[in-house]
């Protein structure tokens, strides 16, 4: 048994898991604010990463300009999406809303393939140093950046929801829309804002993954990987989503290790979270931190 390898894998899992956690948080943000299960979360990563890539390679912008510009674009994009597609569906059954996001997902996935092709495109190099050695472990500097960014985003979320005016308005809306409205909060505005923030945060994750392993349509799979994470943490818990993401990231890498050492099944990295998902749904469907629905008739 190679403990070194296992340790490295767990570290990788933590780093990837933090990214999952960020995406899961932005997923939960939309769900909490507007009760929409967003199957197009992965496309936010995809579009954000392609936008940044395009600015950097076609317009030869430096990273510190191209990155904020693409983030600004995604913020507007998320808001427009909510206003144009999701707003007419308010009050429709859950199934219709889910289907609309599924439709958005395949539409934008195909659009991105059409515009940028099916092959993975590498980002131009951003950091002077490729790898950093920490306690004898080789870590890519991009990964360090991604970990730092994830932590920043999580802290930002915490601040936003605890202290900022808009964050409190959002929490109030999630708690009770009618009461929020009577307090003078504009609910449609909160909906639009939640989509904007979600798209913004997801695209940060998209750019980070793009810098690490190139931009390709595989990025949208992050949107699917979000589901094990949020089910594990509880659909309506921001903290749970973060923890769920980290657990899924570690689980993936450990499953891969177990697979390569003993089972030799192959492809466990991608499938293990889904087995976990089914098991959690059977035992504890509301997740670790989710609120259990108690219905009064």
């Amino acid at each position: 048994m190679e403990t070194g390898l296992l340790f490295q894998l767990v570290l990788n899992g933590l780093i990837v898991g933090a990214l999952y956690g960020v995406v899961a948080m932005s997923f939960v943000l939309i769900y909490k604010a507007s009760q929409v299960v967003n199957f197009a979360q992965g496309e936010f990563l995809l579009i954000g990463a392609w936008a940044c890539w395009w600015l950097l390679t076609y317009w030869k912008l430096p990273f510190w300009i191209g990155f904020p510009v693409s983030l600004a674009f995604m913020t507007v994009f998320g808001m427009v999406l909510q206003v144009v597609v999701l707003r007419p569906l308010i009050g429709e059954p859950v199934i219709s809303v889910i289907m609309a996001t599924v439709g958005l997902s395949i539409f934008f996935q195909a659009l991105m393939k059409w515009m940028f092709g099916v092959f993975a495109q590498p980002f131009p190099p951003i950091f002077p140093v490729d790898q950093v050695s920490i306690m004898g472990l080789q870590v890519q500097s991009v990964y360090l950046l991604s970990l730092a960014l994830s932590l920043c985003i999580m802290l930002g979320f915490w601040w936003f929801f605890s202290f900022s005016r808009h964050g409190l308005a959002m929490r109030a809306t999630a708690f009770d829309q009618q009461v929020a409205q009577s307090l003078g909060i504009s609910v449609p505005q909160v909906f639009a804002m939640s989509w904007a923030i979600s798209a913004l945060v997801s695209s940060v994750a998209g750019v980070v993954v793009g810098v690490v392993s190139g931009v390709s349509s595989g990025l949208s799979f992050y949107g699917i990987k979000v589901f094990p994470a949020v089910i594990l943490g509880g659909l309506d818990s921001v903290v749970g989503a973060m923890l769920g993401g980290i657990i899924v990231g570690v689980l993936e890498n450990v499953a891969q290790y177990v697979d390569s050492q003993w089972l030799n099944w192959g492809n466990m990295t991608n499938i293990a979270p889904f087995y976990a998902l089914i098991i959690i749904l059977m035992i504890k469907p509301y997740g670790l931190f989710g609120t259990k629905n108690i219905e009064r008739v």
Partner: peptide
């Protein structure tokens, strides 16, 4: 628009667009 070479993507987009348009205009 390079339509000839990317007909399969156009079909996928048509599926997505059909879902959204039907949900919004003809539920």
């Amino acid at each position: 628009l390079k339509i000839g070479g990317s007909i399969s993507f156009l079909r996928e987009m048509a599926i997505g667009a059909a879902i959204i348009l039907f949900l919004v205009f003809e539920p």
